[in-house]
Design a binder for these strands. Sequence first.
DNA 1: TTAGATGCAAAGACTTTGCGCACTT
DNA 2: AAGTGCGCAAAGTCTTTGCATCTAA
Lengths: 150, 150
Amino acid sequence: MAVPGNPVDEIVSRIRHASKRVTVAKRTVAQVLADAPGHLSADAITCAVQELEPDVSPSTIYRILEEFEDLGIIVHAHLGQGAAVFHLAGTIHGHLTCETCKQTIEIPSSHFDDLSRDLQSSFGFELDLHHVALSGTCARCLEVRSQSHA
Amino acid sequence: MAVPGNPVDEIVSRIRHASKRVTVAKRTVAQVLADAPGHLSADAITCAVQELEPDVSPSTIYRILEEFEDLGIIVHAHLGQGAAVFHLAGTIHGHLTCETCKQTIEIPSSHFDDLSRDLQSSFGFELDLHHVALSGTCARCLEVRSQSHA
DNA sequence: TTAGATGCAAAGACTTTGCGCACTT
DNA sequence: AAGTGCGCAAAGTCTTTGCATCTAA
């Protein structure tokens, strides 16, 4: 951990630049987010943090996530029905959530470029690419469905 | 109310065809949804229903909304952070929610046709047009923002 | 030293569920 | 008459907040 070029170090320096305090809890949240393969719910982040630092409370996690979001370090999105998910802001992408199996796949935000231009020119609406979260049915569940109808 | 061709009548007949019972509460929910200009939260529906029928409880509203959704009478969408919103299924459209002023505008689902095709061919993902709800910044708030930066 | 950060516990927003009575069919 | 649907109240999930204590700077 704390390898040169590690995202954790960059997060720490952003916290310092904002004149906020660098604490064990914030470092651990940063670590968890940097190590995460995809997006995590607040609850998942809490569990992961508590494996490293058992005394960090959920309310602290929420406060840290809010601060990180204010600083532009992370973004959150609401997928389907459940809790919000968080991930580092660096990787801008969209989310496709399957209503059947609840799995979410991430796709490059470039898929929304045309839509974004259309909404801009048609409605003057600026699409937030961080937040794009769409519902539907994934390929696998479509296949299962078509087989059961056969 | 209950004019010939009224959506309420159609909803009632759908309930009968499904061998479900037609109650005062269900009629009133149908009435409120039919009269609503746009989409309503469960809470807003509850308030509107209670103006007509004060004894209908919130839990009944949730149960009725669930039944109506199972019957394909209504659809719901999650806009931004808050509660889910419901509207009659007949009018398929997308939602653009402004993160600044929280207002939601409805747009024809045709704006998502290209995206839908792209997601289908790129990922095998079938977009649910009922559920499309996007976040961003509306024209008015963009203008306000640009003026404050001037 | 001292102001900001945390832990704990309580509250808040939104939604679901269990139970016994009422009402639709 | 039979059984679905309802009202009430309690619980459940996710998130925020108040307050006393602790700690980074």
